[in-house]
Design a protein around this nucleic acid. Structure first.
Lengths: 247, 247
DNA sequence: CGCTGCTGTCAATGGCATTGACAATGACCC
DNA sequence: GGGTCATTGTCAATGCCATTGACAGCAGCG
């Protein structure tokens, strides 16, 4: 089909001979925080230099497009994690889970608009599968029974995706609304009468600081969750005579 | 004004003299799982027996309506929790946090469509405030420093809201899409080659069972999180007067 | 050459939130 | 009672969005 791609400098517009790949690329580009807005067929058409409805020749509907984008994003997250992790089997399950969660989070947050659209859509992508198998093996090696390890993975991934999409939804709001929400918080927690809410009053500075910092909240939550996993592992280790776990 | 309300039997349609309250009531009704669909102005108008745009006389835009609905929902969750909890200060912090989280989750899940709309909107409602103060006090009494208790609350609430909206988003999908997603999972995890993915293969039954059961996943995740909190409390107790960070 | 299937274009269609002009209604004041 | 005003409901747009169906260029193939 006469590859006329990558002419035209940076923004690959005019005449790219639409393919599934070029469309996905453009769509993902449109979801980045720099590109701002929502993902819409007309914006997509403009980005591709083609009629918006041309996309329907390659994807049955928007849902299919979004699913494909989500797939790529998850895959990217998995690769990010793989790159940040030691190659061979490591015993540091904690680092392993942390890096995986943060990587998936990062690649979704690079496309807030997608995260909003893909909320609750399960892709069950192949990329994910291998990664999950690895995670289970890491936990199992740490001393957790297989099924329990799998449960932990499911928990971890659900929590990560949910909280990430929560953050993404917020960052996809227009700046005005964001500011309004932030102001509401600041007012509420700044004005609390000390005698009625002594504890909240004391922790107000920390709480308002956390408001601006979704990432920090996620880190905290993840850490606490992993502390829980550690406890589980310890219990499992004590129960059996086999596993070796000594902090 | 001529109060002509509550005539007409069950479905309070015709001529109810729109008020903020009657609108909110109708809107919440429309978001229930039984009422099925999305919250839209035209459906709302029909439910109220009035022109859809009449709502704009009482709410500046849809966002304001949704915020008010979210507020009510949170409040309801808090009341639910209060009803299920012993009145006086209890030392069972674990039950306290669990009940609070599950209550908020339950009242949101009673309106999936709302949960989707309200994703990432912070209401900072008054009802919430009192409840949070209580949670902090419970954790503090259990032995956690005040600020750390507040952090835990923030984590817990964020996690709960995020995961709940995640579930709600799924249950708000049309049945066809839901079935499609479910099928994708079943196929993927049923067909895994045992030699390549031994661990996943072993835990596949459990994982597919979990797929239909968001509530169970949430319970597991929450439990693990609380195990983590327990560990934190233990550490704090051991350190006593000093700050204890690492065993 | 004519046929068929693939891909892009164009002009609808129908759903949605939101707005502005207008009408009915009641309250308030002289 | 009559004039004025704000409130509240109605109606007819407007504009964005996804999606569809009819049509046009163009490949390869007999």
């Amino acid at each position: 089909m006469a590859a006329r791609a990558e002419a035209d400098g940076e923004t690959a517009k005019r005449r790219v001979a639409l393919t599934r790949e070029s469309i996905l690329e453009a769509a993902l580009r449109l979801c980045s925080p720099e590109s701002g807005g929502q993902l819409t067929f007309s914006r997509l058409g403009k980005e591709l230099g083609a009629d918006p409805t041309a996309v329907y020749r390659h994807f049955r509907d928007k849902d299919e497009l979004v699913l494909a984008m989500a797939d790529i994003t998850i895959q990217e997250g998995v690769e990010l994690a793989r790159a940040a992790l030691p190659d061979g089997p490591s015993d540091d399950w904690r680092a392993w889970l942390t890096v995986t969660a943060e990587s998936i989070r990062a690649s979704y947050l690079a496309r807030p608009a997608l995260a909003v659209l893909a909320a609750a859509r399960t892709t069950a992508s192949p990329a994910e599968t291998h990664s999950v198998e690895l995670l289970i093996s890491v936990l199992h090696r740490a001393g957790l029974p297989v099924v329990e390890s799998a449960e932990c993975c499911r928990s971890l991934l659900d929590m990560t995706l949910a909280m990430t999409q929560y953050s993404a939804a917020f960052s996809a709001l227009d700046k005005a609304t964001q500011a309004k929400d932030e102001a509401a918080w600041a007012v509420r927690y700044g004005m609390l009468p000390e005698d009625e809410y002594p504890l909240l009053h004391e922790s107000a500075p920390r709480l308002t600081a956390l408001f601006r910092d979704d990432a920090e909240v996620f880190r905290m939550t993840l850490a606490t969750f992993l502390d829980g996993v550690a406890a589980k592992i310890e219990r499992a280790g004590q129960g059996e005579g086999l596993s070796s776990e000594r902090p």
